[in-house]
C-alpha cells in the first residue's frame, strides 16, 4: 500500500480540519461575534459622531480583526495535541511543513476569510466611505492570512503548555504590528483618496514571505512541543 502523496495528504488534512469546524459551527461564529461586539463598543465609547467614527474606522476595524484572530490562534493545534492526533502527524511520512500549512489554511478560511467578507457591514456601521470598502476587504484578506500564519507559530510553540493563551499574545503581537500598520494605512489611503496599491503590495509581500517561512517555523515548533 503506498502512502498518499503530498498533495493528497494536504487535501486530507484540510478536509479534516474544515469538517471538524463544520461539526462545531460555534468555533466559526465566535471570532465573528467577537468582531461584531467590539465594533459595537466603539460608538459607545467614542461617541456616535459620524465624522469622528469615520476618521478612526480604518484603525478600529483592523485592530478588532487582529484581536479576533489572536483569540482563535491558540486553538489551532490544541485539541489535536490533547487527543494524541498531533503525535501521529509527527510520524507521518509526508513533510510536516505542508501539513502545517494545511492547518493554517483551514484556520484562515474559517476566521480571517469570513471576517473579511462580513467586514463591510461593520465598516458601514462606523461610517467608513463606501469607496474604501474594496480596499478594506482586500487588505483584510491579505493581512489576516499573514496573521494566521504568524499565529500558527505561536500556537505551535505554546501547544505543550497548559495555559499558553497569554504567552501566545506576548510572543506574536510584536509580529502582528507591521501587518496592522500597513493594513490600516491601506484603508486610510483609500479613504483619503490616495492610491492604496503600494500598501497592499507590501501586505502581499509579507504574505509571500510568511507562506514561505512560517510553515517551517510551525513544523519545528510542533516538533519541539511534542518532544517534551
Amino acid at each position: 500500500m503506498s502512502p498518499p502523496h503530498t498533495g493528497q495528504f494536504f487535501a486530507r488534512v484540510l478536509c479534516r480540519q474544515l469538517l471538524l469546524v463544520m461539526r462545531r459551527p460555534i468555533e466559526m461564529g465566535n471570532p465573528l461575534l467577537f468582531f461584531a461586539m467590539v465594533i459595537v463598543l466603539f460608538p459607545l465609547g467614542l461617541g456616535p459622531a459620524p465624522d469622528k467614527l469615520a476618521n478612526f474606522a480604518p484603525g478600529l476595524l483592523w485592530i478588532t480583526a487582529l484581536l479576533s484572530n489572536l483569540l482563535t490562534s491558540d486553538a489551532v493545534f490544541r485539541s489535536d495535541f490533547d487527543d494524541g492526533s498531533l503525535e501521529q502527524l509527527m510520524l507521518a511520512p509526508q513533510p510536516l511543513f505542508l501539513s502545517s500549512l494545511s492547518y493554517i489554511l483551514a484556520h484562515w478560511l474559517t476566521t480571517g476569510f469570513l471576517l473579511a467578507l462580513v467586514s463591510p457591514v461593520f465598516a458601514l456601521m462606523l461610517n467608513l466611505p463606501i469607496s474604501a470598502l474594496g480596499t478594506l476587504i482586500l487588505s483584510l484578506l491579505l493581512g489576516t492570512a499573514v496573521l494566521s500564519l504568524l499565529g500558527g507559530i505561536g500556537a505551535a510553540l505554546t501547544v505543550g503548555l497548559k495555559r499558553g493563551g497569554m504567552l501566545i499574545s506576548l510572543l506574536i503581537l510584536p509580529f502582528y504590528m507591521p501587518v496592522l500598520i500597513f493594513g490600516a494605512a491601506a484603508v486610510q489611503a483609500a479613504v483619503t483618496g490616495t492610491p492604496p496599491g503600494p500598501y497592499l503590495a507590501i501586505l502581499g509581500a509579507m504574505l509571500s514571505l510568511a507562506i514561505a517561512l512560517a510553515p517551517l517555523a510551525i513544523a519545528t515548533g510542533l516538533r519541539i512541543s511534542l518532544d517534551a
Binding site: M1, P3, P4, Q8, C15, L19, Q88, A92
Partner: peptide, 12 residues
C-alpha cells in the same frame, strides 16, 4: 472518518 482521514498518512 477518523480512520479515513487519519493524520498518520501511511495509506489511502
Amino acid at each position: 472518518e477518523n480512520l479515513r482521514w487519519h493524520l498518520n498518512g501511511e495509506g489511502l
